[in-house]
Simulated assay, not measured.
Amino acid sequence: MTTTAYTVDEFIGDVREIFDATQDPLAQAKGVSEKMEVLLQTPGWLEERLELPDEGGYGRYDLHLDEDYGHPGGGFWLMASVQKPDQDNLPHDHGAAWVVYGVYEGAIKQTKFRWFYPGEGVDSVQIGETGDFVQDDGKVAFFLPGEIHNTLNVTGDRALVVRLESQKLDRVVRYQYNPEKGRSR
């Protein structure tokens, strides 16, 4: 029995169908996550798209920008990032957009944060960690609008991460957070 690989074009078509089927961001993110898990099981597709060198190649790579579909408006973006060992981001949210992260190769640690208020064991409003988990090869996670998180490459080598932003993030207001100072910008 021969099986055919799930292609990026099929994935994009399925994402469009998900946006057509519902306006609910949770349902959209779950549906896209399920399809991304299938895509991540197809070996070699990312290297073919990016022509990555055996080492290095760090940065972000555009895989598809769709101006017609997305949430909260048109402009969903499928991209890949090649992360350096121990590459860390500041805690951040995605504004009104949601984002699905899939690990193609390597491992990233996702740390979740939230605001704590007086009466929750703190004297003043502050941001704090609420937990973390590691995503290995083929694992997918999503973050809904307003959720705060941070990613860290924990591979010891480069990590290849595929990300679908429900709207290209340079089009939405979003924030980065400094837990030590209790500030956002």
Rank of each mutant, 00 (worst) to 15 (best):
F143Y: 14
A159C: 15
R171N: 11
S166M: 00
R171W: 12
F142L: 15
D136N: 10
N153Y: 07
R158H: 10
T151S: 11
V140E: 15
V161R: 12
P145S: 08
V162N: 05
N150Y: 04
F142K: 14
F143D: 13
P145C: 07
G146I: 07
H149Q: 10
V161E: 10
K168Q: 03
L144T: 14
D170H: 03
V161L: 13
R163E: 11
E165M: 04
I148E: 03
F142A: 15
F143L: 14
R171T: 13
K168E: 05
V134T: 12
V172E: 09
V140W: 15
Q167C: 02
N150Q: 14
R163D: 03
L160H: 12
S166L: 00
S166N: 00
V162K: 03
K168T: 03
G138D: 02
V140I: 15
D137L: 03
F142R: 14
R171K: 14
H149A: 11
L169N: 00
V162I: 11
E165F: 04
D157G: 13
T155S: 15
V154G: 03
L152C: 12
G138V: 00
P145W: 02
D137G: 00
T151Q: 08
K168V: 05
G156T: 04
R163G: 04
D157N: 13
I148K: 06
V134E: 10
G138T: 02
E165W: 03
T151L: 10
G156M: 05
G146Q: 06
E165Q: 09
K139R: 04
